Simulated assay, not measured.
Amino acid sequence: MKNGSALLNDSACAIVDGMVRDAERLRIAVSTGPLGERLVDAGAAVLGSIEAGLHMARATMGGLGEVMPVIDGASTRWPFQLEVRSSQPVLACLGSQYAGWNLSEDKYFAMGSGPVRLLARVEPLFSTLTYHETAASSVVVLETGAPPPEKVVEKVAGATGLAPDRLTFVYAPTQSLAGTVQIVARVLEVALHKARDLDFPLEDIVDGIAAAPLPAPHPDFITAMGRTNDAIIYGGLAQFYVTGPASAARELAEKLPSRASRDYGLPFAEIFAKFKGDFYAIDPLLFSPAEVIVTALETGETFRSGGRDAEMLEKSLA
């Protein structure tokens, strides 16, 4: 991808403009904030919808990924899954979709995702991810149940150089239909993030596809968070197509699945309680799909590791 264009930001804005046009059908609410920012509530004070969550997920990927519901005929208990794929997986998932921008302020907690991160470039990740954009407007996606306060809007505006009225904030809590969808749709992103933590050369990951079961939302935040994480940790499947030596592809396949983590083996809600709610005390290597397939394009070899855990899914998603 060439630097300088506004490809991801323009694509995300177009996706969100479509959401705004279809707001009634998607059961979302659109308003204008005190600084002129556009606010799209996809599941906080409104019911929202699965389709709204699909649009959110596509927007977070800057239009460089497909997200769609599919049926897994082999699963009788959790047959509906989300499938995510991208021919630009590193840029779509790490450069845009990853919720890596801390936008917390006082008692308001939120991590920002979406192509706005390519404009702000305030995260350490962008010291290695060299792609950048300039854009006339942008989209911020927040996993939260409240619109951003003025200080957060000002922070985003200051970091991006965009006036507040050129920013759209789309938000939905974990407990909502849309929130559940957009979180599970990160199954490919968490695999890429772990590959980076394992020091696999990101430029060698040239294509990717992943899927995870779509759990039911739950009104309790901890339960809802547990379900969305467990859908990936115990039910996620990801395949990477990589260049470079087959030995590196084999090693990535062996190390990438979630069961390689020291914290594997309990529902996520129980792991969260075990660490007294300290998310950052949990082994970061836990956050990856249950099963991984890596294909070495130069030799045609495919390596597999891990496996989906129906028993753990039953404990968490039932």
Rank of each mutant, 00 (worst) to 15 (best):
L285T: 15
F200V: 05
A216S: 14
L64P: 01
A136I: 00
G43L: 09
G95P: 13
D106S: 14
V46T: 15
F240N: 05
V30G: 02
A135V: 02
L39Q: 09
G53S: 05
P115W: 01
A159N: 05
D22M: 05
R196P: 01
S96T: 13
Y234L: 11
I282W: 08
E83I: 00
A44H: 10
D106E: 15
G236P: 08
L177N: 03
A269Y: 12
V70S: 04
L198R: 12
A12H: 03
R121D: 10
V242T: 12
E254C: 03
L167F: 03
A185C: 07
V242A: 07
R166E: 03
V116K: 01
S258E: 07
F279L: 15
V141H: 01
I271C: 00
P284F: 09
A212C: 07
V70H: 00
S11W: 02
R308Y: 03
G43R: 10
E314Q: 13
S137V: 00
D207L: 07
T180E: 04
S258T: 10
M1V: 14
R27W: 01
A120E: 11
I28F: 03
R308S: 06
A195S: 13
E189G: 04
V140S: 00
S247C: 00
L94R: 08
G95D: 09
A45L: 08
A290I: 09
A216C: 06
R85K: 15
A146C: 12
L266W: 14
R117W: 02
L192E: 10
L91Q: 13
L266R: 13
H218R: 04
E66Y: 03
L118A: 05
L118Y: 08
E189W: 06
Q182F: 12
E150L: 11
L317Y: 07
A29L: 11
G36Q: 09
A52H: 05
D22P: 02
D106N: 13
H132M: 10
A110L: 03
F80S: 11
P115V: 00
S96N: 15
Y241K: 08
A269F: 07
I15C: 02
E37N: 05
S316A: 11
R117L: 00
T174I: 07
L297F: 04
G48K: 08
F268E: 06
A157R: 06
G100H: 06
H132K: 12
T60I: 14
D278P: 00
P124N: 08
L142A: 04
E254V: 06
F303D: 01
M68I: 14
I293T: 14
L286K: 02
T223W: 09
G95A: 11
G114P: 03
A253T: 11
I50F: 14
A44C: 13
S261M: 09
A248Y: 04
A74H: 12
F275V: 14
D10M: 01
A191L: 13
A216M: 15
D283K: 12
A195K: 11
V16T: 00
L214E: 08
L285Q: 12
V153H: 00
D204K: 14
E123Y: 01
A74C: 05
V122G: 04
T243F: 10
L129Q: 10
T243M: 13
D17H: 03
P257W: 09
L118N: 12
P147H: 13
H55L: 13
P267N: 07
G236A: 12
G244C: 06
T160C: 05
E270Q: 15
R304N: 05
A44F: 13
R196Y: 14
V46E: 06
A136G: 15
T130G: 08
